[in-house]
Design a protein around this nucleic acid. Structure first.
Lengths: 353, 353
DNA sequence: CACGTGACAGGGAGCGGTAACATCAGTACC
DNA sequence: GGTACTGATGTTACCGCTCCCTGTCACGTG
């Protein structure tokens, strides 16, 4: 079943590294010293305006680009960040990565990426190798592998965690992190369902990043408890539609279950299918709400009610925080990203009477 | 509507770059010269077995990791690759990236990433800046921005294109590339629909990476022509469910249209919704087939018939090709990845009579 | 008019590696 | 036994850049 696709090797050219222009050439061309060129590149003071302009023009003309390796080696400012993340295909991860990359690119940072296998238990040594010389990192720690990687890093290494929730109780270890406060959002979604007349709401969770309950889970419990309803047992699933489907089959078979909150939209999709197969009508006699509001969700059948989460903004803020960390000169983080919002669509409705 | 989420700055530690262990320290500890250490690191000959073992042990003990920047600066072998890609959230891109990253990581390569904005028209200069010192690159060029970036790179720069189709006719410019041969797959999907009794098949395409027709489009035309059917006008859409939905509304309103082949699964999802809204029954009186076979597709309502494409394998092969390019010593590319396969599900069926 | 002062500019030493060349055995050969 | 060769090491010169430190100039000041 293999052997398809195609390859064209092209005219194999050896990695010919020509005489890349260096600051020396720029200096010579501009009639100044290499040091002055360096000052101009780094926007340092003590360079006369006209000299600066001249150098800048020369750089432009020679199409000179500073050698990153040399800058890093010579102890220049940090200008790169390595992102440690789990599967980049999942919507939340991909979006956060996108936000990080965008923010990094606009300030001239290079972004490296290394994916953490779900079951990887890396020692400090291995995690550092993943960073491969990077001098700063961002760890997207929505699940255990990320949390472990974050913990494995030396305490003085510049890193910020993009996490599911702050490691409260666990003595937040003083590491900078950003997170979406979705506890209230989960509560709101739950209350919305309760308000629709459902006697209870069942929660199908995504894997937890720690041993304790996630914010979403807590928000769900909060709402249930506040309404005086018993909290049904927590159901755990993975990240994929398949996993949601498998976990939901049992749930949908129980007619007492009329409302399901799923940890993310993919899970919700699986729930939707399980419901269909079990002859349940959504939203007729079963309501389903997801988290993330992926681009697909509005087009599903039925269109999925979902909690919109601004992962991209989260990623941007995470990078901003890191930037502040490695360069105190940098602009303060725009600590503002869209707050979770419940997007009502077709998959949720009044409880069956 | 902003201001949610949360930030913890932690105990702000300045970017303290301690005295990283260098090969000199290893050399001293092992009682050899730094050059011998270098030889060991790079697996070069002319080192006695016991000396090698000693150095290796010392490296292990000191937790030494070679400084990438220094290696790069000193003209060592290429050990990093920059991936230029469009939106990482789209399934095909994300999967290909995943394949590249995985293959790169297993051979110790670092992978950088830079995303190309859809409308970005970058000059050679800008593209090179994106590479930021990298000495090798992979461009995922499924659309125009990627194709342009690929073209903008200097002809002698080590780069491989992961493309939609070879730039045939356009004098393939002798650059190494990998692609999935999905022309036949598109043909097969079309023939399948024709075989089900549909008088014609309409194609809703994703954006093209060039001005000419894509392989998928051609495969679709091939099958239609071979069957003696007229080729309906080509419909173009974007990449998202929304774009598929918008483009399909007109199509589904036409009762003559009984089979739609969509350029990817997201588009197909949009088509499905448009069909539902138009009162068309899938597969009752409209069949829909997508491309990609994303993880969600099997769970949609109706489950989507789709052409499974092995983007991950493609990415792996692309990296392998690059590896061969920069390091002739490297193992030859496993030129084998899964061939496109039509996965029959619920969204396709006999033509309405 | 000599001197301090600050803004500019240049020189030189690394950063941590690799490549090329120089040494120095130990072995092979005539 | 002397020369040639070969494998194992050490020595030296960069790679391209940034830091630290030393000059140089034009002012202002006493």
């Amino acid at each position: 079943m293999t052997g398809s696709g195609n390859i064209s090797t092209g005219t194999s050219t050896p990695p010919d590294r020509g005489p890349a222009t260096s600051i020396w050439e720029v200096a010579r061309a501009a009639g100044v010293s290499h040091q002055t060129v360096s000052r101009v590149i780094n926007g340092k003071p003590h360079v006369k305006a006209e000299t600066r302009a001249l150098v800048l023009a020369t750089i432009e003309e020679l199409r000179f680009t500073p050698n990153r390796a040399a800058q890093a080696l010579a102890g220049g400012p940090v200008r790169s960040v390595t992102v440690l993340t789990a599967d980049t295909a999942a919507y939340g991860y991909a979006s956060a990565l996108r936000g990080i990359e965008e923010a990094a690119r606009t300030v001239g940072f290079t972004v490296g990426i290394s994916v953490l296998e779900p079951d990887a238990v890396l020692g400090a040594q291995e995690v550092i190798e993943r960073l491969s010389g990077g001098r700063a990192a961002i760890v997207i720690a929505f699940e255990a592998a990320g949390t472990r990687a974050l913990a494995a890093l030396p305490p003085d290494y510049p890193v910020v965690g993009v996490v599911e929730r702050p490691a409260a109780g666990h003595a937040s270890d003083g590491r900078p992190q950003v997170w979406i406060d979705d506890r209230e959002a989960a509560s709101r979604a739950t209350r919305h369902l309760l308000g629709l007349g459902h006697r209870s709401v069942h929660y199908l969770s995504i894997p937890s990043s720690t041993q304790v309950l996630s914010q979403r889970t807590q928000g769900w419990q909060d709402a249930l408890t506040a309404a005086g309803r018993p909290v049904p047992p927590l159901r755990s699933a993975g990240w994929t539609p398949r996993s949601g489907y498998l976990a939901a089959r049992e749930l949908v078979a129980d007619r007492e279950v009329t409302a399901i909150l799923a940890g993310n939209d993919d899970l919700a999709l699986g729930v939707l299918r399980a419901a269909r197969e079990a002859g349940r009508d959504v939203p007729g006699n079963l309501s389903v709400i997801g988290f993330d509001d992926a681009p697909q969700s509005a087009y599903l059948a039925p269109a999925l009610t979902s909690v919109r989460l601004d992962f991209e903004g989260l990623g941007r803020a995470g990078f901003g925080l890191l930037h502040n960390l490695v360069d105190p000169q940098s602009a303060p983080v725009p600590s503002t990203w869209a707050e979770p919002e419940l997007i009502l669509r077709e998959s949720s409705g009044p409880a069956p009477r």
